[in-house]
Design a protein around this nucleic acid. Structure first.
Length: 270
DNA sequence: ATGGCTGATTATATCAGA
């Protein structure tokens, strides 16, 4: 028996404000599983009914007031959720669930890595230090959980653009948080320790530019195209052949009152 | 390579985003 699952990750930048955009995306793409980041609301304020009306009966969230927050909304049943408190800060940057694909049970991790502030120096910018520590903890956690040897998917706004073609100008971005060598090195270590496959780059070769985020500060974001690939989909090696398609819905960045991130969608086949 | 915008908050300025 064959099974297919469409899965989307999207930094929505306030799920309450942009529920109409979620609805529009669902009308156009209709994913089975929707992973959101920067929901920016407490669990008690989450728009459960709005998502249920869109057909997502299985919802697991990890929210907090005003900032961060992640959610998984699914048409299929989800296994028990767990919420890891990376760096022991009590913030809401991870939710783990599981779902079935054919005969498999797949662990799904939805994450929001700290942005890291402006100055790429942990001595003067604690937010950058937090980001580096977070990536170190991610690497240790992936290794301990043996994600590479299981059926695992990790998605989210990881706030690092690792390849030269993941930013609009590699040289200019070397000192800009999200593309500094130390961040890239630490992200690559997470990928190595976790045995992950960078799925987006299986479909768009490293020679080609690929972005998922465009700053609000550029009114001509489309023509300037000064984007970055901050959003990611990683799978374990066991799922390498299960990912049949991937796309970034860039046009969603041009919708009315958009998120600054575009949704990234993958098709999984069992 | 700089300057630019958006959302949430017991708000009318501040912080965070990246």
């Amino acid at each position: 028996m064959s099974d297919a699952c469409l899965l989307t990750t999207w930094n929505i930048n306030s799920v309450r404000l942009r529920l109409p955009l979620v609805a529009r995306f669902v009308r156009e793409r209709n994913p089975d599983i929707l992973c959101l980041q920067e929901t920016k609301c407490r669990d008690s304020e989450f728009p459960f009914s709005g998502l249920r009306e869109l057909g997502y009966e299985h919802i697991e969230i990890h929210g907090q007031k005003g900032y961060h927050g992640v959610a998984v909304a699914s048409r299929r049943p989800l296994g028990p959720a767990h919420r890891r408190d990376f760096c022991g800060k009590g913030d809401s940057r991870h939710i783990g669930v599981s779902f079935s694909l054919g005969a498999r049970t797949i662990d799904l991790h939805n994450m929001y890595v700290p942005a890291g502030g402006y100055e790429p120096d942990r001595a003067i910018n604690p937010k950058f230090g937090h980001k580096l520590d977070f990536l170190d903890e991610m690497a240790a956690w992936c290794k301990a959980a043996d994600t590479g040897a299981r059926d695992c998917i990790l998605v989210g706004d990881l706030n690092v653009a690792p390849l030269e073609t993941d930013v609009w100008n590699h040289k200019a971005m070397l000192t800009v948080v999200s593309h500094t060598p130390i961040e890239v090195e630490k992200m690559n270590r997470v990928i190595r320790q976790g045995g992950w496959i960078d799925v987006m780059r299986k479909f768009v070769p490293p020679e080609k530019r690929l972005f998922s985020w465009w700053s609000y500060r550029s009114p001509d974001w489309l023509t300037a195209d000064k984007g970055r690939r901050l959003d990611h989909v990683w799978t374990s090696q066991s799922l390498a052949d299960a990912v049949a398609a991937m796309d970034v819905l860039k046009e969603a960045r041009g919708w009315e009152r958009p998120s600054d991130h575009a949704p990234v969608t993958v098709l999984l086949k069992a």
